[in-house]
Write a protein that binds this DNA or RNA. Structure first.
Lengths: 232, 232
DNA sequence: GACATAGTATATCAGTCGATATAGTCGTCG
DNA sequence: CGACGACTATATCGACTGATATACTATGTC
């Protein structure tokens, strides 16, 4: 309704003091939203955790929803940045009519491996994973943005590659199901917030290495089977 | 704290009237908890949706947490029932030291296919899937029960089968990662609450058939690769 | 040094939450 | 019939929510 009075950066000078508290609010809010959900995390908790007073949230982000959207947009932007180098290569391979199947399969493997890196590295990755997982089940402001972003950056490229491997149109429902199953191998690693099956609480380097190896091997095996089937 | 005054069924007779409202509360609460989460769904919404008054929830389930636990336990019990026929066969195959690899692979495929059926059939399956997905990211009363149930019924059997296929101990972290990736293929179908990639909103018979076929083919391809690697 | 602006702090609003005290209705059995 | 227990309805409690009005401090410009 009101476009709020989000501070205009007319004075490009010293107000970096506010920039710092703004960042602190975002970090605290990310952790709390991830842990308790949009409705479960209160603005008072966030303000206290960030060491600021309550109206600061209103001051910097308009309202609770604005704060949430700011977090979502940050994650979406990071995803774009992370996929920036791979996306054009996939697009080029899909645009060319005669890309060999080995290259398509290799790109699909690389795609999923890059996805693994996305959900296992970066700052506050534990909370980002949870936000990412929530995007699939919760219906909160801005999460549709994140969902749409994942579709564009992850799902659609994988769908395109896999469809070409099978020699079927990407509009086939079967292709969507196959793509979802493929991606699910990685997405599940977003969920294990306290999974006892993975040593310790956080993801150590060894776990990440294993995840990449496993996802690559699985995807490779699935691609081989796909090519063998579509060739016969 | 208080063991509440949950009605004793001393009179086995006519109070089936209350049994009906109890069921209605459970059904409404399942939908609302699935849609808005434990903290997001209010007891007032639930009572209104079920067509009962607010204290009815306290009367039948002690408090909000009791209502939630009742739902979780119902889902866990259904899972047990659904896996009842397959579990002993898997156990027998794992106990026998000389079970052929083809049979282990076949059991693993059947395991995952049964899992697909579990998350795609039954009453209020849409909401049950969301509750299932929430169990992995939310930290609410009783969800540890559901999580432990999934570990026992799904994860551990798959881990055992896959470890034998690879000829490695089930305690290897690599085996846990491989099992998670396998299961993730199915779990992701719990998330697509409004996925545009699957036609329509609900899951039609065709989608379910495709999911079973795809999961079986993928698992089969992964098993072949596993056997080939461990044999060399 | 005075003024404007960025940013912070206190106090409080109305609304909603889960829970419960209290009173009432209904069928069943002695 | 009349009392008892299963069940339902009204009203309200204290706590907490998001939001905001208001006043304050600090900083840079003129």
């Amino acid at each position: 309704m009101t476009d709020a009075r989000i501070p205009v950066r007319s004075r490009p000078a010293i107000q970096a003091r506010g920039e710092d508290t703004r960042r602190r609010i975002l970090e605290t809010a990310l952790d709390l939203f991830a842990a308790h959900g949009y409705e479960g995390a209160s603005t008072r908790q966030i303000a206290e955790g960030a060491g600021v007073n309550l109206p600061a949230i209103q001051y910097y982000f308009g309202n609770k929803e604005g704060l949430y959207r700011a977090i979502i947009e940050g994650i979406a932007a990071d995803t774009d940045r992370h996929m920036a180098s791979l996306a054009p290569r996939v697009r080029a391979a899909l645009d060319a009519p005669d890309t060999p199947r080995e290259e398509l399969a290799a790109l699909l493997c690389e795609m999923l491996e890059t996805f693994v890196v996305l959900v296992t590295s970066g700052t506050q990755i534990e909370s980002r994973r949870l936000i990412f997982a929530r995007a699939e089940i919760e219906e909160t402001p801005g999460l549709d943005v994140l969902h749409e972003n994942g579709m564009r950056q992850i799902f659609n490229p994988c769908l395109g590659l896999l469809s070409r491997l099978h020699g079927k149109p990407a509009t086939d429902q079967e292709m969507a199901v196959r793509t979802l199953a493929l991606i699910g191998q990685v997405v599940i690693f977003c969920n294990n917030h306290k999974q006892p099956v993975l040593a310790g609480s956080g993801l150590d380097a060894e776990s990440v290495r294993l995840m990449k190896v496993v996802v690559r091997e699985h995807t490779d095996a699935i691609c081989r089977a796909a090519v063998a089937t579509s060739a016969k």
